[in-house]
Design a protein around this nucleic acid. Structure first.
Lengths: 108, 108
DNA sequence: TTAATATATTCCAATATTAGAATATCGTCA
DNA sequence: TGACGATATTCTAATATTGGAATATATTAA
């Protein structure tokens, strides 16, 4: 597989490589309902422009899509099932790593 | 879920958020055999220190683990099945996005 | 011990990412 | 039209990431 393909993949991964963006994705996965910027900003108690920019990064990576309704721009996951799987894989890695660390430190 | 948990998850995602590191992971997944630094460097035609550093980043995220044999440090995936799933999810997102772009541009 | 080889680390300059404030844009309604 | 609210964008300073050269460390063999 050529490097350009990995560039594409890395763009997607980079879009997810931020705690807040992961949290937003998980939130959108749970609620299923499209949410507007200010609402998400209030949920995470963050600056509006910060959330807007993070959502824009997720959108550029095709992880979320928008639907405009009047003044509102509502965001949802583009491929909820795939993102669900992806987030689960990440959880598993973190979990197994933590379990392994506990196992290793038991002998101290 | 609290922000600290997302920090942990983001660390794992960040470790994968680089084309070369994705390529290395996919390579290690395919070969299954532990590979040493210089060999991987030759496969990707990259500087030894660059590969060593990328592997170190993957190791810190518990994505790869090492086994030392004499002068060699051989790297393998810690959780091949999980990484396989994760890489597949990423592929799916890229694929579906590309398909969608083709579909959209057909009407031009 | 010395040489040779594999790997890790340090150093540096270039580039990318980030948050938050300020500002701009866009849609709605009086 | 003009004001208002929602969102996007710009600007800036701080911080993080990156590649490559140079250097350090560690293991093996002569």
């Amino acid at each position: 597989m050529n490097l350009e393909t990995y560039e594409l993949k890395a763009q997607v991964v980079k879009a997810l490589a931020h705690p807040l963006r992961l949290a937003i994705c998980e939130y959108l996965l749970e609620t299923k309902e499209p949410k507007c910027v200010n609402y998400i900003a209030s949920v995470f108690n963050k600056n509006q422009s910060v959330i807007s920019k993070h959502l824009s990064i997720l959108q550029q990576a095709s992880i979320v899509k928008i639907q405009k309704e009047g003044v509102f721009t509502r965001y949802t996951l583009t491929q909820p099932e795939i993102i669900d799987n992806l987030l689960k894989s990440i959880n598993e890695i973190v979990k197994k790593t933590a379990e392994n660390n506990i196992r290793l430190t038991k002998h101290l």
